[in-house]
Amino acid sequence: MAEKIMLCRLVWAEEYRSKDEPIYAGNMRYPAAHDLALERLNFADENGSVYGFVENRGQNFDLRKLGAEAADQSVDGVTVIFCAVDEQSNKLRVVGWYENATVYHEPKKPRRDSIRGKWEYYFEASSKDAHLIPVTARDLVVPRKTKITDRGFIGQRCVFYPANNPNYERFLESFELLRKDELVRGSDDIDQSEFQEGQRASREMTYFARNSKLVRAAKAHYGTNCLACGFNFADFYGDIGEGYIEVHHKRQMADDSVRLKTVEDVDVLCANCHRMVHRQAIPLTLDQLRSLIGDQQKPRKRA
């Protein structure tokens, strides 16, 4: 059986650990009107566990979509991907996920001593399996329909099952890169620039591995010297480096509407420069990187 995956849309928040945390609800009418969103506590640690909620219009989950039997009241081993619309770009972005979660058929009432109070929940997982993405690193965009007639996309319902859906094949590949990134696991104090650098550069590498024609065209157009620093792999490493250079997408790969068509959309960079481009939330332009390199190469004045 394919992996058990749920995609759940939440309100936008930074921490999801406080009932009083500011939220952005977008077009989610009830949370916007009442400032009430039970998912505000989805990443709050309660004695080593987290309890998650998603607005489901008061309905129960059909667990058969996750491989359960009709009479089952819960199913284990589910990956629950949480996404939300950010106010600035109005894009639906992945904000975090649970691994190895238990999903309940109907909402469960919390224990009397729970910080949730009377707030019900649908999901339960170990805190170690709950991964919240820092706000500035939430760059994985969830596909949505662009026309009313589009089918097979997450819609007004906040719950969706993306496995085996061709519209979500590329998204799930990108999610796997995010999921495997060791920098996000087990720490709330990760270096966000390193997270962005590793995730975005890895996503680009995966994209270009599937688009070899554009890579060949970029090398033919620009050559194999780094456009930022001039480094050439063959000059430094010999035959093993012949013809090698990394291709960098000038615009952020997070936007699934972006499609690369010509060499004008890319730069060729050495591995070091490629990483440096992604060291901040908004990637550096080629001119900005060249300027930084030039500044470092200027003679230093003696004290």
Rank of each mutant, 00 (worst) to 15 (best):
E87K: 14
E87T: 10
E87M: 10
Q88I: 13
S89Q: 07
N90Q: 15
N90A: 15
N90H: 15
K91D: 03
L92S: 03
R93P: 05
V94P: 01
V94Q: 00
G96K: 03
E99M: 13
E99F: 06
E99W: 07
E99Q: 14
A101W: 08
T102V: 15
T102Y: 11
Y104N: 05
Y104P: 04
P107K: 06
K109P: 01
P110Q: 06
P110L: 02
R111F: 07
R112A: 13
S114Y: 05
R116I: 09
R116W: 06
K118M: 06
K118Q: 13
K118T: 14
W119L: 05
E120M: 11
Y121L: 06
Y121F: 15
Y122V: 12
A125C: 14
S126F: 08
S126Q: 12
S127Q: 14
S127V: 14
K128R: 12
D129V: 02
D129W: 08
A130R: 03
L132F: 11
I133G: 00
I133A: 01
V135D: 07
A137E: 08
R138G: 02
R138I: 03
L140Q: 01
L140E: 06
P143L: 02
R144F: 00
R144Q: 12
K147R: 15
I148G: 05
I148R: 06
D150S: 14
D150N: 12
G152D: 08
G152V: 07
G152H: 06
F153Y: 15
I154R: 00
I154D: 01
G155M: 01
Y161Q: 04
N164S: 11
N164T: 11
N164R: 13
